[in-house]
Design a protein around this nucleic acid. Structure first.
Lengths: 166, 166
DNA sequence: CTAAAAAGCTTTAAGGTTGAAGTAAATTCA
DNA sequence: TGAATTTACTTCAACCTTAAAGCTTTTTAG
């Protein structure tokens, strides 16, 4: 392998580490924000956002695919949200294996309030980033993603874009 | 607030969601890689990488700051690694509150092997990204980071750059 | 010098996360 | 049809993670 390749390899690794670090720091900030302001957690927020975005009841498995988390994880988080009266589960009429989750009215209204504040918070966090930066960012991420294997997250018909979108 | 600001806010949120999603997907891939190839986990790899990079024994608290995780978390992960013979802890001679961690010879050699494979894996994952992309990336992340509060992660003298660097 | 505050770690309780195993329902195909 | 496979979810054990509380040591200030 040439020196150039080695150099590129090294730089790719550093870029990944940097990206990971930035993401982790931002997540930490938002976690703290949700905890102190709304007494909730990121995973719960993510689930609520996915359900809110999807408009209609969602299968447990769809939820897992959209959020990139395991099956058992979805069960656990939704269970806790249900205990707090934020979600409800029901059997799918089409397929008796499937479970449909949706937000309760309480879950809906709590999420909508949080989502506004969350959006503001992200806006503040990213205040130095202008439109052209965002274009660049999108382009870069597109390239990054095109590198990756056919698919780690096999896409079912799910729109597959919004991780905890609000 | 003007429409433009609203639009920018919306786009910033979408960019963040996209970034988070990309990072999560890549982490999932690398977790699977470490698990199947080396029977280990990301947090352990991160700890080993930080210790390896730092060259000399590291305080528990330094470790937490570099990795952006809580104090208790460091205790737990290091404890498990110690049980597997990968790390050792000793009291600091300078400060009897402090605990110094370092890699054992076993930990060192296992890490070095993994690190090479990990670097290759990242290289493969990011194969579509060329040098100018990486420059752009670095510039963008710099901007993103400059947005953020004085500091979520108050920097002690720690060099503060390498999250699970190898 | 000493009381008060801060710093460094560990412990604990609660929750998040995974991979694997288990159960039940749907689908495939011989 | 009906056995074999696949799909959807839950359960489980192990581990990760955090925030808060507790303990010890160091530092700060009066």
């Amino acid at each position: 392998m040439t020196d150039d390749c080695e150099d590129l390899k090294r730089r790719r690794l550093r870029a990944w580490i940097r990206l990971l670090r930035f993401t982790r720091g931002t997540e930490n900030h938002l976690r703290e924000f949700l905890r102190t302001q709304y007494n909730t957690t990121l995973p719960r927020f993510d689930v609520a956002a996915a359900l809110h975005r999807h408009q209609k009841p969602m299968k447990m498995s769809e939820l897992g695919k959209v959020l990139l988390v395991s099956n058992g994880n979805v069960t656990a988080v939704v269970e806790r949200m249900e205990k707090d009266g934020l979600t409800v589960r029901s059997q799918s009429p089409d397929d008796r294996r499937s479970v449909l989750v949706s937000l309760t009215d309480l879950g809906q209204s709590k999420f909508e309030e949080m989502a506004r504040a969350h959006e503001d918070e992200v806006d503040t966090l990213f205040k130095n980033i202008d439109g052209s930066d965002l274009d660049m960012m999108r382009e870069l991420l597109r390239k990054f993603e095109s590198s990756r294997q056919p698919n780690t997250v096999e896409d079912t018909g799910a729109e597959g874009s919004g991780l905890h979108r609000d």
